[in-house]
Amino acid sequence: MAAGPVPETPYDRSMTGSGGSAPLVELDGLTVRLGGRTVLDAVTARLDGRAVGLLGPNGAGKTTLIRTLLGFHRPAAGKAAVLGLPVGSGAALARRIGYMPEHEAFIAGMTGVRLVRMLAELSGLDRREALERAHEALVWAGLGEARYRTVETYSAGMRQLLKLAQAVVHRPQLLILDEPTNALDPPARRRMLELVEHLRDTEGVRVLLSSHMLPDVERLCDQVMILREGRPAAVLDLAAERREARGLWVVEVSGDEAAFATAAAAVGFGVARSGRRLRVTAAGGPGPAELFAAADRTGTAVVRLEARRDSLRDIYLEAMGELP
């Protein structure tokens, strides 16, 4: 697997890589039932970020949502549209999407270049162009030296990169990535993120990313939908969250901690225990001066005061109802 800087992408500037101005995904009461169980329950959302992350615990419906958008599952009720085209609109939509599935996905007995070429042809490229693009995509993904090997001989990391290469070979407007960094070691994970970042920033490819890795979502996405038990628990504009001056401090006090917490809460802080420290939040208004005043009133001393940005982890845990 090649390391180093991300090489030229398989895209060219004449492509309509931006994906237009249509919302990435629009869901209108989307309900999906599988095996007698409601997996997505009347989901309504409009996701128009350049890169949208799907978060949620196992079984929340992330993969089912992706598969429904790809047309693999038929909705029991409601509607969905991707890039402005209704789901199920056939070839027109399928050509605009590149899909990287979560699980192992290859066809044994085929070389990397032959597999990617075949998939490019299925996306509407003629034989010669498909071959050229397959080579470009594999070299771009760092599989240039392995492209003539049969894919069953690839390592787990190489198979992930192969899945990415096949997803971009036809130059889609939208890249749907389902757990792309699964089973990758740190260098391979970094490489994968760099490749996706490069497509997003340089080629204007829009991204729908499902991942358990919060740092990956935080790095790649500007909008996040958090799913919980088949419903959207939160839809966040990450960029706006980052801009918002939401106060978050981690405080350590000596003395009567409970009295300090009560006094801080009385002046408008949200107070929660976080290990040996207190996690203090304020949506505006009170700041560190009020915290010191609360300590004075209760005869405690602030030993440590650390300002923090509300991380995606905090937002996620709050949406899951797991934040104390």
């Binding site: 790809l70 693999f72 399928a94 999407i97 899909y99 599935p101 699980h103 192992e104 996905a105 290859f106 066809i107 044994a108 998939l119 299925l122 996306s123 069953e152 899945k163 096949q166």
Partner: peptide
């Protein structure tokens, strides 16, 4: 080896 989704996503 799960190749079918790659085909049917086209």
């Amino acid at each position: 080896d799960g190749g079918l989704p790659l085909l049917l996503a086209r």
